[in-house]
Every structure is written in C-alpha cells, then in structure tokens.
Design a protein around this nucleic acid. Structure first.
Length: 202
DNA sequence: AGTAGGATAAACT
DNA sequence: GTTTATCCTACTT
C-alpha cells in the first residue's frame, strides 16, 4: 500500500514519527531498491533555526518545501552527500522530514555495488550496517540524487509504502549535525526505532 | 571509544 | 569568500 497524499498533509513532527517502519522504494529500470525507515528528523517551520527555511527564507531550491505535501526535497551537503527529505504540511507552510537511516529490504546486491563496489556476500558485518545507516549513505545505496528533487512521492519511481507491522518503540531525541542552530539544536525532533542496528547515532 | 582532519561543490552572502 | 541537515580514514587512549 502506497502512502496517500493525506499522510504527508500534516505537521512534520507527526509525519516524522509515523514514517518509522514505512518502506522507501526507488524503482530503477524495473528494479526495486527498498529500505525500511528506522530514523527520521523533523524540520518544522520558520522558528526552527536548524532548517534551511528558518526565518521564512525562501530561495529557489526551497520552493518545493513551500509547495504541496508528498514531494521530495533532495539537497547536496558538504559537496558530496545527498540528503533525502519528504515535504509535509500544506502549501506555504515550510516543513519537512529528513530520512536519516533505514534497513535494506530489496535490492541488496545493487546497494552493495553502489556503496562498496562489492557483492553483498563480500561485505563484512560493519559494511552491511554501513549500507544505509546515515542520510548520505542511504541516498547512495538507493541511488537518490538531486535529479529526484521535487519528485512526486505519490507518483511512480520514488515512493513510500506501508511497512509490515513490526512492533518497535520510538526513541525521541536531539537532531544531529546542526550545532550552528543555537537553541534549536536541542529540540527533541529526531526519532528512531529503539535497538535497531541501522540507526546512525544512538 | 574518542578525537581530528580532509574531501568537495552547491548555495548563499 | 563562507558555510554546510556527512562520511571516511587515521591516530590516540
């Protein structure tokens, strides 16, 4: 079951929490790369100094976030890593959820190849975890880059599906990598699946 | 287990 | 010219 537009048409905090356990799918040439989401972060409104759109900043790359919910926002950080976000909330209300980590479900060979240029069987235990345990890593594993910025997640190619009802507890804590964000750096806006090996930072 | 530094380019000032 | 929602490697304890 693909998640409907309404799922995304809410505040980022709710969407971030409920995205845990959902499955992110990227179809390439008929091949499915899929990952169960285990860690997310909410970036919520103009008061949030950690967000690109803080203070109501509205530049060309941010237009998608000011648009309709259920679209992707993909950007490049540190000149080499992509970050995948889901746009939430209504038009002109900038909110988004960063997908920070997941566990591979489908297309493991392709992921191993993209991340390490090795077959899955050649990977060490650490490398298997390293496939998708971070925002930049998961984008490399799932072949997500800026060409997918603005993609409709209710369309074809890149979308999210309902997961398999696995039970887990949600840990709520501070976000990662936003030390510049003054008081916002301590906001409890990161969520992850308790005990999951693929979580980027415990 | 922790700390340090470098890679590397788009976006923004 | 500065900053950056990261990752990897190497070195120290």
């Amino acid at each position: 079951m693909r998640l409907p537009r309404e799922f995304y048409d809410r505040d980022a905090l709710s969407v971030a929490r409920e995205l845990l356990g959902k499955v992110l799918v990227h179809e390439i040439d008929g091949q499915k790369l899929a990952m169960r989401i285990v860690e997310t972060e909410a970036y919520v409104g103009k008061e949030d100094k950690a967000a690109h759109f803080h203070g109501g900043r509205r530049t060309s790359r941010l237009e998608v976030i000011y648009g309709a919910p259920g679209f992707s926002y993909v950007f490049l950080v540190y000149g080499m890593h992509h970050c995948f976000n889901v746009v939430t909330s209504g038009k002109d209300d900038p909110q988004a959820v960063l997908v920070r980590a997941g566990q591979p479900v489908l297309g493991l060979e392709a992921m191993a190849q993209r991340r390490y240029t090795k077959t899955f069987g050649e990977l060490t235990g650490k490398q298997i975890i390293g496939l998708t345990n971070g925002p930049g890593k998961l984008c490399q594993a799932l072949d997500i880059d800026r060409s997918l910025n603005g993609a409709d997640l209710c369309g074809e190619g890149l979308y999210l599906e309902e997961g398999e009802g696995v039970d887990f507890r949600i840990i709520t804590t501070k976000r990662v990598g936003i030390d510049y964000a003054e008081e916002a750096k301590d906001f409890p806006l990161r969520f992850y699946s308790e005990g999951n090996a693929y979580v980027s930072v415990k």
